[in-house]
Amino acid sequence: MTVRVPARVAAALTRFCGPDWVADLPRRAAERLDAWGLAPAGDPLHGAVSLVLPVTTADGRPAMLKIQPVDAETRGEPDALRAWDGDGCVRLLDHDPGSGDLLLEALDPGRDLDSTIDAHGIDRALETIAGLLTTLNARPGPPGLRRLGPMTERLVARARRLRAAADPPGDLDAALDRWAGVAAAVAPEAGDRLLHWDLHYQNVLAPLPGTGRGPWLAIDPKPLAGDPGYELLPALWNRFPSGPGAERLLRRRFDLLTEATGADRERARAWTLVRVLENTVWSLEEGDTARPAQMLALARALGS
């Protein structure tokens, strides 16, 4: 069976996955369709690092075939989806350990939580995110999942090396030092809850009509085991506010999320600053000068 990857999808995936991986996608997709008895049922979709094909299973059910590179972030996705078993998230139907390919229940890709914000306001979206996080974080991380504690210790070391090598501007240099100190302090007690890691508004989809699922379900986790306070940054950072009231709006988002999830405010603040540090280190390593300014604004909103 021939599977064509649209040029726009190939271009988007090449940035993160490389041209060789993208060039091999038609073969991989055709092989998996044949192995699982699937029939294509729509135009290919994509995430930042995945090709998603709408399909119909051999017994006539709609589903989604997800093909992505297997790395430290994606390796635990099938284990996390099995642990959640559809409670608050998309349901895993099948998984090929050799390739990492996933067969997922079909949700509605045209109805994500982000599309509701203009009509209903961001507070309602934040309440939905908080409800999903409360459900998803209720379980312990499965054995073998990456752990937040060691990740944080490595992040502190990277931040300190970066400060020594890159000589960032004074305000950012001082902030990196503060945030690394916070990260070093909380790393020894990093928790064991099953975390999604990337629950922003576009990673929440509505179910298909008539399935009795939802009303909203999380997709595309990059799971790890750790403290639920580490989960809040995507909903704070996405739809980043601008203007003179930006820090006040960010603080309001944080207050709403911590209240709705029942999180310990100071612990959630500390772990959010760890995420701020993580985003800043990535950005500086990649030469991105825009994101650190947003991270500084977010940290100021949190009092750091």
Rank of each mutant, 00 (worst) to 15 (best):
69 P>A: 10
109 P>C: 09
84 W>M: 07
107 L>N: 06
102 L>C: 09
71 D>F: 00
74 T>S: 07
72 A>E: 06
79 D>K: 04
74 T>Y: 01
111 R>E: 15
96 D>L: 12
65 L>K: 04
83 A>V: 11
80 A>Y: 07
69 P>F: 09
110 G>P: 09
106 A>M: 12
68 Q>R: 10
78 P>A: 13
69 P>N: 06
82 R>E: 02
88 G>R: 04
111 R>Q: 14
76 G>S: 15
107 L>E: 13
89 C>D: 02
98 G>C: 12
86 G>M: 09
76 G>A: 15
124 R>D: 15
101 D>E: 15
112 D>F: 01
121 G>W: 09
107 L>G: 05
132 L>S: 08
89 C>P: 02
88 G>E: 00
95 H>I: 11
106 A>W: 06
126 L>R: 00
99 S>D: 11
125 A>Q: 08
111 R>H: 13
116 T>G: 02
117 I>Y: 02
102 L>T: 03
115 S>I: 00
93 L>M: 14
76 G>T: 03
118 D>E: 14
108 D>E: 15
115 S>T: 14
99 S>H: 03
109 P>G: 13
114 D>F: 08
90 V>Q: 03
64 M>F: 13
106 A>D: 03
64 M>H: 14
86 G>A: 07
94 D>Y: 04
88 G>K: 02
82 R>P: 01
115 S>C: 04
126 L>P: 01
97 P>M: 12
82 R>N: 02
130 A>Y: 01
71 D>K: 02
